[in-house]
Computed example of a mutant assay.
Amino acid sequence: MIDDDVELAELMRDVLKNYSIELHAVHSPGEGFAALEANKYDLVLLDVMLPEVNGLQMCSKIRYSNAPYKDVSIIILTARTELTDMVVGLETGADDYVKKPFEPRELVARINAILRRTRAPELAAAQPQVDEAPIASAKSGVCCEIVLEGDVLQIETERAQVRMNGQKLETTSMEFELIAALAQRPGEILNRDDLLGEVHGTNVIYTRSIDALIYRLRTKIKEAGAEVDFIRTVRGRGYSLVGQVRQSISA
Score class of each variant (00 low, 15 high):
residue 213 L to R: 06
residue 228 V to R: 05
residue 209 S to I: 15
residue 181 A to M: 02
residue 157 T to C: 03
residue 18 N to F: 09
residue 189 I to A: 08
residue 114 I to A: 00
residue 244 Q to R: 15
residue 230 F to W: 06
residue 101 P to E: 10
residue 12 M to C: 06
residue 52 E to D: 13
residue 110 R to W: 11
residue 109 A to R: 14
residue 116 R to A: 03
residue 156 E to A: 02
residue 199 V to K: 02
residue 182 L to C: 00
residue 26 V to N: 03
residue 53 V to N: 03
residue 117 R to M: 13
residue 120 A to F: 03
residue 127 Q to G: 08
residue 97 Y to R: 10
residue 197 G to E: 10
residue 173 S to A: 13
residue 143 C to A: 01
residue 175 E to I: 08
residue 208 R to I: 11
residue 131 D to N: 13
residue 92 T to W: 02
residue 46 L to K: 05
residue 125 A to H: 02
residue 99 K to D: 09
residue 225 G to F: 04
residue 211 D to S: 13
residue 74 I to F: 02
residue 141 G to F: 00
residue 150 G to Q: 08
residue 93 G to A: 07
residue 40 K to H: 14
residue 218 R to K: 15
residue 132 E to T: 06
residue 70 K to P: 00
residue 174 M to Y: 13
residue 175 E to T: 07
residue 21 I to R: 09
residue 23 L to I: 04
residue 178 L to T: 01
residue 92 T to A: 12
residue 246 R to M: 11
residue 130 V to R: 14
residue 167 Q to I: 12
residue 41 Y to F: 15
residue 191 N to R: 03
residue 244 Q to D: 11
residue 234 V to Y: 01
residue 122 E to C: 11
residue 230 F to Y: 12
residue 198 E to P: 04
residue 131 D to Q: 12
residue 101 P to W: 06
residue 133 A to L: 12
residue 8 L to G: 07
residue 12 M to D: 01
residue 43 L to N: 06
residue 69 Y to C: 04
residue 102 F to C: 11
residue 211 D to T: 14
residue 109 A to L: 07
residue 244 Q to S: 08
residue 48 V to N: 08
residue 122 E to R: 12
residue 49 M to V: 02
residue 55 G to C: 00
residue 140 S to Y: 02
residue 15 V to K: 05
residue 9 A to I: 00
residue 131 D to M: 10
residue 42 D to F: 12
residue 171 T to E: 05
residue 245 V to D: 10
residue 221 I to A: 01
residue 100 K to T: 04
residue 117 R to K: 15
residue 71 D to K: 10
residue 178 L to N: 02
residue 55 G to F: 00
residue 166 G to R: 10
residue 12 M to H: 00
residue 195 L to F: 12
residue 63 R to Y: 11
residue 135 I to Q: 14
residue 122 E to K: 12
residue 11 L to M: 10
residue 245 V to H: 04
residue 78 T to Q: 13
residue 38 A to I: 11
residue 49 M to S: 11
residue 79 A to F: 02
residue 148 L to M: 10
residue 72 V to K: 05
residue 120 A to P: 02
residue 235 R to M: 10
residue 198 E to W: 05
residue 180 A to Y: 00
residue 217 L to F: 11
residue 129 Q to E: 10
residue 135 I to C: 05
residue 119 R to H: 09
residue 233 T to H: 14
residue 84 T to G: 06
residue 209 S to A: 15
residue 218 R to T: 11
residue 143 C to M: 07
residue 99 K to A: 10
residue 75 I to N: 07
residue 182 L to K: 01
residue 18 N to I: 04
residue 126 A to G: 08
residue 115 L to N: 08
residue 244 Q to P: 00
residue 200 H to G: 02
residue 106 E to H: 07
residue 200 H to E: 05
residue 95 D to V: 00
residue 137 S to P: 00
residue 249 I to N: 07
residue 26 V to L: 06
residue 157 T to N: 01
residue 104 P to S: 05
residue 161 Q to K: 06
residue 138 A to G: 07
residue 156 E to P: 03
residue 138 A to R: 03
residue 233 T to N: 09
residue 117 R to W: 02
residue 92 T to G: 10
residue 114 I to D: 01
residue 181 A to C: 06
residue 7 E to I: 15
residue 1 M to W: 14
residue 219 T to Q: 12
residue 36 L to I: 02
residue 233 T to F: 08
residue 216 R to K: 15
residue 204 V to P: 03
residue 126 A to K: 15
